[in-house]
Write a protein that binds this DNA or RNA. Structure first.
Length: 172
DNA sequence: TAAGTGATCTCT
DNA sequence: GAGATCACTTAA
């Protein structure tokens, strides 16, 4: 039978923190390779000073203002591609940064290991793209999801830098 | 702890 | 066009 139960627009078209909780433990699939998502960071709208879109809609951030379920991929520090998935309704810029999957820890290492680069920017998460998500077979117990402040966003000021928007799947 | 690296954004 | 910034990683 065909396995096409991938997560799509309706799953991602919700508040980013809700999506984050449900996406932890789900699978990231890249050209047949399947990895459990273990670490995410949420970036929630124009008022979130750590979110790129807090500085407004530009050429680079425009994808976050678009439809949910589309990838936002950008280059950081001149060498590392960051893989994000857009969430929430069109017009509200929010996304989840995928920081870890399988036994890969670190957003730059993840994209390098999976061969993800800027060509995936603005593409929907879909089997046709070769990069998409499927739900976990069994949803991880909430006790196994831990939240902490996000990494590397001290420039956003104490309020936003301390928000518990980093989601981790703890070993169970 | 520091440096490598290049796109993007904000000034001129 | 110039300069600052940056959701990282690795080697010490």
């Amino acid at each position: 039978m065909t396995m096409s139960n991938h997560l799509e627009h309706s799953f991602f078209n919700r508040p980013v923190l809700e999506v984050a909780e449900d996406l932890i433990g789900a699978r990231l699939i890249k050209d047949g390779r399947e990895l459990t998502i273990t670490e995410l960071e949420a970036y929630d709208g124009p008022s979130d000073l750590a979110c790129h879109a807090s500085k407004g809609c530009t050429e680079r951030t425009r994808v976050m203002y678009g439809a949910a379920g589309v990838f936002y991929v950008y280059l950081c520090y001149g060498m590392y591609w960051m893989l994000n998935i857009v969430t929430g309704p069109a017009g509200y810029p929010a996304a989840l940064l995928i920081r870890g999957a399988g036994d890969i820890s670190g957003p730059g290492k993840l994209t390098k290991a999976l061969g993800i680069d800027g060509s995936y920017n603005n593409r929907p998460a879909d089997p046709k793209t070769g990069l998409y998500f499927t739900p976990p077979e069994t949803r991880p117990h909430k006790k196994l999801i831990q939240t902490t402040p996000r990494i590397g966003v001290s420039y956003a000021g104490p309020v936003w830098a301390n928000k518990p928007y980093r989601y981790l799947l703890t070993a169970g």
